[in-house]
Design a protein around this nucleic acid. Structure first.
Lengths: 166, 166
DNA sequence: CACTTGCCTGGAGTGCACTCCAGCTCCTTA
DNA sequence: TAAGGAGCTGGAGTGCACTCCAGGCAAGTG
């Protein structure tokens, strides 16, 4: 409990930071022709995964060099950043492919895209609520274990037992 | 952004609610001998999953009826509630089994259990931060689509284009 | 008594999201 | 020019977390 209160500012700060400070592109537009391994380094995804994303239709068309090697652009990095975020929220890859399809189909899919994002947003809110609830449980149990493993010298030991499920 | 601010109270409320209002046991201690399907209904886990959890060592010993059928107790429901929460945070089943092992080994594992919970807690905080960051991105994109799909009658249409990765 | 329902077991199967492999081309460096 | 390294493809393999199946037992119902 105590810890939850303590951490709130930390969370806010992080969220704001991530929202406003976009990681800049490694190279400016015009000189943005990244190899697959550069993109892997930048995004944290493996080269296997990058090729696989393309196969399943999760990526837009990727430019190729004259020898057929992939050359990613800054907009591809942006797309991958979004995919990465959605992935971390637990969104299924199939749903992301659905969204990619909508983008490919053109501007008339704006309402559908919007609906999909709003549904995702609701889902993210639910997950945050779940996590905060879990955090309370963890703090409760950690407090109990702390009492048992680090009893303060000037404190009378509580006779209460650590709860059965701890 | 606007929406994020708006939702904060909702999140807090939910977290507090889940933390403080424990769902009571369906039956009081002493009359708590639930069949596997009752437990499945209560926890939302399938009977398959419940049996599988037992097989892999994620459950403590479960009582059996004279005919060999499982009879779960209230403390088993409590344990499953914890497992369910940890599962929703993305904790690997193998890690939960590790924790269950520590519980089985007895009180001398208190420090190790505490360390494990603290590590999990850090992980949960990271996930919450990620989700909040994703939320910002979603709100940003939703705002853009809202402008394009529901332009207010008294508002001049902005000429800015929806960003490329939307 | 037959029938249905619920539970039991060990083991096989499923879906997802990667992850790796074999065999190839192309380019650079010694 | 030989060797090494990065990239290419289609397809096979992996690990996780379930999910289902076959075959059987026990209790309740008409």
């Amino acid at each position: 409990m105590t810890l939850t209160q303590q951490e709130l500012p930390e969370l806010e700060e992080r969220a704001d930071h991530c929202a406003t400070v976009e990681r800049p592109h490694p190279r400016p537009d015009g000189q943005d022709r990244y190899t697959i391994s550069e993109v892997a380094d930048h995004t944290g995804l493996s080269v296997h995964t990058l090729r696989w994303y393309e196969r399943i239709g999760l990526m837009p068309h990727i430019d190729r060099s004259h020898t057929g090697q992939r050359r990613y652009r800054n907009r591809d990095l942006d797309w991958l950043a979004l995919v990465n975020k959605l992935r971390l929220t637990g969104m299924a890859v199939a749903d992301m492919v659905r969204y990619a399809d909508l983008v490919r189909q053109g501007d008339h899919t704006f309402p559908e895209r919007r609906a999909l994002l709003i549904a995702t947003r609701e889902d993210v809110l639910r997950r945050i609520a779940e996590l905060r609830s879990t955090l309370s449980v963890l703090d409760f149990k950690i407090d109990i274990y702390t009492e048992y493993t680090e009893p303060a010298a000037d404190t009378v030991l509580v006779s209460e037992r650590a709860d059965a499920t701890a």
